[in-house]
Design a protein around this nucleic acid. Structure first.
Lengths: 220, 220
DNA sequence: GAACACAATATGGAATACCATATGGACCGA
DNA sequence: TCGGTCCATATGGTATTCCATATTGTGTTC
């Protein structure tokens, strides 16, 4: 075994590059994704590009069209509402399981991530605060100790990143994380579920503030 | 437009073939999946096979190993537990949303699927009953009117099919479906949530009874 | 006899080439 | 001038080929 752990196929690099291009707005929604063009830009063959596009389709960032070029996905208000709904259900579950199953080590890790987030948000460092907020959720999912849940979380991560890129109330989020941490540490399940639901609603609220005329969003 | 709607690349055929092989036990867990072999068997090039394996990896039916052959996934008891947990959360959500959002047409469709299932299970037609049970859940997801939820459901479908292939209490399942249908039709949310939770537990119970003859690959 | 090293082979990763079909525009006719 | 049809081009799908590396069997040495 020479580098089994560190081996990275070209397609990985292409995936990251194209994904970042999309998330950073370099490739705006609706723009063409032509295999040959991307291959030429990145100096690789079409095959890694094909692989990468498949992955990005699975991540929901790219819309394939049979026999023709793929396009960067355009998220409709309905898509956003759907994502919030599913995310809420999964995160409430993750928080609940984390409260039930956390280990001392895991809890300490969560504490550290939380502190980093609190610090960053109080300093007004938006980039690090957002990063820490994402880490917080990822760590909670980790504590939940459910491989499939982690897998789905990874799958939705790009979409979430896209969705939350315009979230601003970083301090409020960090404070809610603090409360959630306490409830998890105390294994207070009812409180965790309540807080997690509220937290999801908070994040959604900030996003829905923008025009997004969600259609069936008045449900909850 | 010649056949834009009916076009199917070779990889689709390969996907179905290999997936069915796995689910039918023709390719048992742990067995090698060698691109060249499969390509030769199906009379296609390696590329469609590569594509197919990627998809099956995404479906969780195949475990890839960098630079070496992939293997048919071995489900550990832990994997099964994880799947049940996630499935429960998502289905409760699907049932709740279906109760909130169903249209008259959709409800009628659900009624028809349910009747087919009741009929088949009373006749002792296991194959059709199982098919109808799957259709019932799929229709409910459809009624929930959340594209992402449907997407994840499709993703998990193969694993569920594998998991439920040994489910026997078809009559009981159909009867629980009947109750769920009524609660959905009445838009009785609390009852739907309670029934959905119980239903998930029922299915799990039957499966946990017979601890999947996993290839005791206690590797992870 | 067992364990390690090395070589032959198997296998996935990537590049190149070719084909079938969708796309987009130009030309023709009304 | 507008609409339809046909053709050149663009583009994704597939096959073939070569390459780097993991696997596996064999021989050698302690």
């Amino acid at each position: 075994m020479t580098d089994a752990g560190t081996f990275e196929p070209e397609s990985e690099r292409v995936i990251r590059q194209v994904r970042d291009d999309i998330l950073d707005g370099v490739r705006p929604p609706g723009s063409r994704l032509v295999e040959r063009e991307i291959a030429a830009e990145l100096g690789v063959s079409r095959l890694p590009v094909r692989d990468a596009l498949r992955v990005l389709v699975a991540e929901g960032l790219v819309t394939p069209r049979p026999r023709t070029w793929a396009v960067v996905r355009e998220f409709t208000p309905s898509d956003v509402a759907d994502l919030h709904e599913v995310r809420t259900a999964l995160e409430v579950m993750a928080f609940r399981l984390a409260a039930e199953r956390h280990t001392p080590e895991g809890l300490a890790r969560l504490r550290r991530v939380l502190d980093a987030g609190l610090h960053a948000s109080r300093d007004g460092d938006a980039v690090r605060a957002r990063r820490a907020a994402a880490d917080f959720h990822e760590t909670v999912t980790d504590l939940a100790d459910n491989g499939l849940l982690s897998e789905i979380e990874r799958l939705l991560r790009s979409r979430m990143r896209w969705l939350l890129s315009q979230h601003d109330d970083l301090v409020g989020v960090a404070e809610e994380h603090e409360e959630l941490y306490q409830a998890i540490a105390d294994r207070d399940l009812p409180r965790v579920e309540q807080l997690a639901t509220v937290h999801a609603a908070t994040v959604r609220a900030v996003n829905v503030d923008r025009p997004v005329p969600a259609q069936a969003d008045a449900s909850e």
